[in-house]
Design a protein around this nucleic acid. Structure first.
Lengths: 212, 212
DNA sequence: CTCGGCATCATCCGATCGGCTATCGAACGG
DNA sequence: CCGTTCGATAGCCGATCGGATGATGCCGAG
C-alpha cells in the first residue's frame, strides 16, 4: 500500500537549523518538508496555505511572539496540524508552556536524528513525544515538586530583579511596605534562599522571570 | 585554473545544526565538509587527522569544555586551521572570549546562508569576519564603553548571587567587611545599580557570572 | 619617578531589610 | 455548616545594608 507522505512545516528563525532539519528529514522516504517559516505570523499563514500534518516549532523566534504563542495560534485554527517543539532549551517552565499551548511533543536540538524521525511519525498520530532528557527532567521535578509561586509573588520577583527597594515595590503594587515584605518572606522560603539577591539569582536560573 | 576545495570541519553538539551547515555548504562548489565533531576533544583530534582549512565552531558544546576552550586548543596546534565561530549568542563577553581564544570571525546562526559562505571564504584567507549584528554590537559598546569589572569584583558578584551577606563574603574572601562594602560600591557604580539584587540581575543579564 | 588604578581597611549613620506573629476573606472538603 | 488551608494584608524590631569619606600599600604605565 502507498502511505501518504507526512507533510512537515519548519518554523525556526535560524536558516542553518531549517536547512539542517530539512536535510535530515528529506533523507526519509515517508516525510516531506512542504515549507519553512521564520516567525510566528509567517508560520500561521503557512499553516493555512500549506496544511501540513506536523509543524516543527522552535521556541525562540528572535523578535516578536515566541514559539509558544505561535503554537497556541496554530492550534486554534480549524483542523490544526500537530505541533512538535524542537528547541535548545529544556527548562521545566518552557516545556510546560509549550505543552499548555498545545504542543504534542518536545524535542531538543541535540537529539540524534533517529529520535527526530520517530518523533515526527509519532506526532502525526497524535502521540505525545518527549526527548529522553526532557522526560527525565519532568520526572525529576515531579518527584521533588517545585514550590509554585503565586502570581503576586512572581510579580514581586519581577520588580525585585530591577533592584527596587520595598518602598518602591509597595508603591508600584499599591500595597503597604509590610505586605511586600511578607510576600518576600514567602518567596525566600519557597526558593530556599534568605536574601533578595539570592532570590533574584534563583528566579532567573529557573526562568521564573524574564530576561533579554 | 583549479582552485583547491576549502576543507571545513564542523564542531557543534547539535546534530541538527551540523546537518544544516553541511547541507548549506555542500551546495557550494568550492567548499567541502571533511568532518564533524560534537565536543572539544573530538574537535582537536579531528583537526590533527583531517587538517581542515577552516573550523566552524559552536560556543556551547553541552557538557565539558566550551567552544572558546576548544578554539584555544586548536589554535595552539602546529599550523592551525582558521577557526570561525558560529553560534547563537552575541554577548560582548562571548565575542571577546572567542576572539581572545584565536577565532578569526564570529557568525550568528540566524545569519543568512550567503553570509556564511562569504565568511568561510574570507576566513580561509585569514580575514576577520563578523556578523553585521555582532559588529554593530561591538561598535555600540565601543562608543559607550562598558565599565569593566576587576577580577575581585567579579569574584564578589559571583558570591553575591548566592545571597550571602557582607560578613560571609568577607570571611570567604579573607578580607574585612569594610573591604567588601567598598568593592560593592564600585560594582554598583559600574553596573549602574544601587542594590545587591539589581547587581545580581545585571550581572546575570550580561553574563558576567556563570549560570547553569 | 610620579601618577593612576586596584585592593585593602576603617568609621559613622540613616535607610532598609528579614524574621516573627497575626488577621481576614475565599475556596474546599467533610 | 464548620474546620482547614492558603493567599494577601499588616506592624514591630533587631540586624544588616548602602553611601560618604578618607587612608594605606602595591604595581604597572608613561
Amino acid at each position: 500500500m502507498v502511505t501518504p507522505m507526512i507533510r512537515v512545516l519548519l518554523v525556526d528563525d535560524h536558516p542553518v537549523v531549517r536547512a539542517g532539519v530539512r536535510a535530515l528529514l528529506e533523507g526519509q522516504p515517508d516525510i516531506e518538508v512542504v515549507g519553512e517559516a521564520a516567525a510566528a505570523d509567517e508560520a500561521e499563514r503557512a499553516v493555512r496555505e500549506l496544511r501540513p500534518d506536523v509543524v516543527l516549532m522552535d521556541l525562540s523566534l528572535g523578535a516578536g511572539p515566541g514559539g509558544a504563542t505561535a503554537t497556541a495560534g496554530i492550534r486554534a485554527l480549524p483542523e490544526p496540524p500537530q505541533v512538535l517543539v524542537l528547541t535548545t532549551y529544556d527548562t521545566e517552565a518552557d516545556i510546560l508552556e509549550a505543552v499548555d499551548a498545545g504542543a504534542v511533543g518536545y524535542l531538543l536540538k541535540d537529539a540524534p536524528p533517529d529520535e527526530l524521525f520517530r518523533a515526527v511519525r509519532a506526532a502525526v498520530r497524535g502521540e505525545m513525544v518527549l526527548s529522553p532528557a526532557v522526560a527525565a527532567r519532568l520526572v525529576r521535578r515531579a518527584s521533588s515538586p517545585e514550590p509554585s509561586l503565586t502570581e503576586r509573588e512572581v510579580e514581586i520577583l519581577q520588580l525585585l530583579a530591577t533592584g527596587k527597594g520595598n518602598r518602591e515595590l509597595a508603591r508600584e503594587l499599591l500595597v503597604s511596605e509590610a505586605t511586600v515584605k511578607s510576600h518576600l518572606s514567602h518567596i525566600y522560603t519557597k526558593l530556599g534562599v534568605d536574601t533578595r539577591a539570592g532570590a533574584v539569582a534563583v528566579a532567573i536560573e529557573r526562568r521564573i522571570i524574564r530576561r533579554g
